[in-house]
Amino acid sequence: MTPTPVLFSLAGRSALVTGAGRGLGFEMAKALAQAGADVVIHGRNEARLAAAAEAIGTATGRQVTWTAFDVADFKAGRAAIAEIAGRFGRLDILVNNVGARDRRPLRDFTPEEVGALFATDLIGPTLLAREAAEIMAHHRHGRLITVTSIAAQIANRNDPVYTAAKAGLTGLMRALAVDYARAGITSNAIAPGMFATETNQSLVNNTEFSAFVDIRVPVGRWGHPPEIGPAAVFLASNEASFVNGHVLVVDGGQTIRM
């Protein structure tokens, strides 16, 4: 009797998750590892990456490795992609999660500061996706997953450059979905809402802001970071093979509330 396939299994797949030393990237990397993928996590802080890789390995029973580079450094990113593909013989999944925050009025930005934020949040991920897609196309299989934000759909005051970069990622994801689909590669995005990550802890502890979350988010709370992981596993899996060019919003319903 033929065994029933395990749904959402990523066994035999290799994955790179950028910005995975903590927060949502860490949780997505852990979920991919739990599903059976060989996971490489990325960041710039080597000590943090080493600790994160060990934590994920302890939680999942799988060996997780790490690579450190600045996504705005294209040569370093290209070298890292090539090294990972050489190590595993392929690269199946790229989760473009890394992103810098610089939220202030447009009048306060210099041209150089706009360029720096775009280099990290948009240009770097674009070039990483290009390198990954070329490798994936050779094997006729791949999953490009771009982590955008609900800020790509709804704007907040005094946050124009970050919002523009995230909206650009959404456009990039859709363009890649068209360009690479015939090569066996799907391209999708995850748009998180308000999650209680380390970087948001001061807001989580702010009674007034948390009261706003209770009103604004239909489920009445912050997102728990582990709740983002299954979204990445789904989009990376064979079960999502006909999902292409989609933004999977994980926000407790915030963006659909009047």
Rank of each mutant, 00 (worst) to 15 (best):
P111D: 04
R257F: 14
T163M: 04
G99H: 01
N96G: 12
N45A: 09
Y180M: 14
T110F: 00
T199A: 15
A232E: 07
V6D: 11
G252E: 11
T120H: 00
A82H: 13
F109Y: 14
P218C: 12
M136W: 03
F88N: 13
N238M: 11
H141N: 12
G61V: 14
A79D: 09
V204F: 11
K75M: 07
V40G: 01
G171E: 01
L106C: 13
W66D: 03
A152C: 02
S14C: 10
P105A: 15
A72T: 00
Y180N: 04
R221N: 15
I84E: 06
I256W: 06
A155H: 12
T163D: 00
G21C: 04
A82F: 07
T60E: 03
P5Y: 08
A35I: 13
T126H: 13
D102A: 14
F74K: 03
D73T: 10
P5W: 14
R13S: 09
Y180I: 00
V64G: 01
N206W: 13
A37D: 10
G193L: 04
T4K: 15
G193T: 08
A236H: 01
N244F: 04
R62I: 09
E83M: 10
P230G: 11
I93D: 02
L7N: 08
T199C: 05
R78E: 08
